[in-house]
Design a binder for these strands. Structure first.
Lengths: 342, 342
DNA sequence: CGTGGAATAGTGATCGTTCACTTTTCCGTC
DNA sequence: GACGGAAAAGTGAACGATCACTATTCCACG
């Protein structure tokens, strides 16, 4: 396979051409200094002439360091948290690591197995997972010097950083809406496999109960606009529901569209809130009330934890809780007067 | 660094424990067969007892195969083509490769250097780039046995698969709009660094001219909704422009919102078309006329080309052109009667 | 001019696997 | 029971770097 290419030159060949020892070339490559200017020149010339490039696999083998960190994602992650990844990558690069996104097909178990494979095969020094890795912590730690971190927001074990604090904004939304007259709510939740979805659902239920409001159900959504659409479409024409709390912006968008399609004004007849503050939600009509989530900060914090772990340093203070902030826009407003339609 | 973990057992230690030679263990690992059942049992027991996991770095070094393909992205790719990536990953996994997404900061040159590094350092067997890699083809091919493929849609050298055919839909849009009375257009383009953006812009200019229509300028956008907003905001109140061709859905969304904000009906006063058929555009109000792009197919085709290249097989037929299809929705309509506002 | 210590450069082992051979074992047959 | 050939297992050398030492060169100084 692909033996069409000429064999790559090695450090020894460079050394021979430069009339030095291979170790001298290695020193040059590692920028270790302590080389005479003339030697440096000869080595550089030899490298240039042969088109030599160090074999990083061989180097990794000897040094037992790969400089690679992996981020493991479910393969069908249509909703790639790109802002989080970008920020995480920036931190990784800053620290001299190469960050790789590995998408793994199959369920959590398959993903977990794969992540473990990556870690224990010496291919990467650390793994950042955006979804839970069931059973991974049971693995014998002896076989690996790698580290893994599961991002709180997506953690499946409810031990993420400030996870419940995160979902607490659901409470703020409901309190605000209740304050402007809303009594009857529906929640469009995300898939149960996502702890962030579960947390929001849980807070929703608790707060509705605490405030003595009425929940007309929790819809099991799949994060897609379509399911948000279907959820509102499924409401009775005379449904008393006046507020929909969607667990993300696409579902909220679908809900808004369904309301408008049946002639319900948003927010005159129905208030809808989303989550994530997508750019498109800001420019939609009506613009979407949503929750600003600092994905960049999440990505940075997660990657910093991972790198600290990999380096054996103490974990950075968990004090930096990513702040979620409610942003009210046009899709929410006062509840309609009972019995009237807007 | 991370010397906290116990050293990992090697094949030799497994062999010693199983009272066989290291080569026998290797045979077992490679599933080469030809082992007595009893030997297999002893090896398996030893592996189990030691918690042995093969060192993939060492294996890669010897076999000169990594089983890894990389996808190189610009780090600030806020618009990660996730559907394309998912499909590409599926193909890669199918073929027994691990696909990694490497995001590289810096400009095209930096990215190109990095991609070259990946290829020539033996870390990956192939690189799929979604953005151009200037100068990469100039590199001496001798030093590498790896392959690289640049996805047409994002190619910078205008030699992608059906690239112009791709942008030709711009012509369809304009022809359609001209057919319903539009004469005065504006194009909101993507950054010039993206060949897809350039192609759309070029077709826009050509078709406007060919049909004898009037272009009131091409706005240099950055793919964001904000710039689409600003573009329409910048039009004069009595601008004759009645149709905006945006190069993607977010910019189109911004344009729609700006129009509505200044009291221009969409599509009564201004028609707006996007590109990519994002789910949110379908559920927006008004729903966005857009261009359906088969990102999955693009991803599949690109990855298949790469794998064929890596394996030294002939490239698969380039016959499978991803089809782009215009979808008309609510954001486009007949041109307003001259001199009247909707 | 000899000496010593820093600055440079070299030598051989090593990382953990697989490859290419060689050797031993096994078993049926003459 | 010796023979032969296949099956099973073993031996030592790679792969291409770096590490841990050792050796040489250089130069200031007594």
């Amino acid at each position: 396979m692909s033996e069409n290419a000429v064999r790559r030159p090695t450090i020894v060949e460079v050394a021979r051409l430069a009339q030095v020892s291979h170790q001298t070339v290695s020193r040059y490559l590692r920028h270790n200094g302590g080389l005479k200017p003339d030697t440096v020149r000869r080595v550089e010339a030899a490298i240039e002439e042969l088109g030599y490039r160090p074999n990083l696999v061989a180097r990794s083998m000897r040094t037992r360091r790969t400089g690679r960190l992996a981020v493991v994602l479910p393969a069908p992650a249509l909703l790639l948290p790109t802002r989080l990844l970008s920020a995480a990558a920036a931190v990784a690069h800053e620290a001299g690591f190469l960050m790789e996104v590995v998408s793994v097909e199959g369920g959590p178990v398959e993903r977990s197995r794969h992540a473990w494979e990556l870690i224990s095969s010496g291919q990467v020094e650390g793994v950042l997972s955006l979804s839970s890795l069931p059973g991974l912590s049971d693995q014998p730690r002896t076989a690996s010097s790698a580290a893994f971190v599961v991002v709180g927001e997506y953690d499946d074990e409810l031990r993420g950083i400030g996870e419940l604090a995160d979902a607490s904004v659901v409470g703020e939304i409901i309190e605000h809406l209740a304050g402007v007259g809303h009594r009857h709510f529906v929640h469009i939740a995300g898939p149960d496999a996502w702890s962030s979805a579960r947390a929001r659902r849980q807070v929703y239920t608790e707060v509705i109960e605490r405030l003595g409001l009425v929940s007309h159900g929790v819809v099991d959504g799949d994060w897609s606009a379509q399911c948000g659409y279907d959820a509102v479409r499924a409401l009775a024409e005379d449904s008393p529901v006046t507020a929909v709390i969607a667990a993300n912006d696409p579902m909220a968008t679908g809900a808004v569209r369904a309301a408008l399609d049946r002639g319900w004004g948003v927010p005159q007849r129905l208030s809808v809130s989303g989550w994530d503050d997508l750019e498109l939600g800001r420019f939609a009509t009506p613009s979407l009330s949503s929750v600003v989530v600092d994905r960049e900060e999440q990505g940075r914090v997660a990657m910093e934890r991972l790198i600290a772990l990999v380096r054996g340093e103490p974990e950075p203070e968990a004090a930096r809780l990513p702040l979620n902030r409610l942003v009210l826009r046009e899709s929410t407003g006062p509840a309609p007067v009972l019995g009237r339609r807007a």
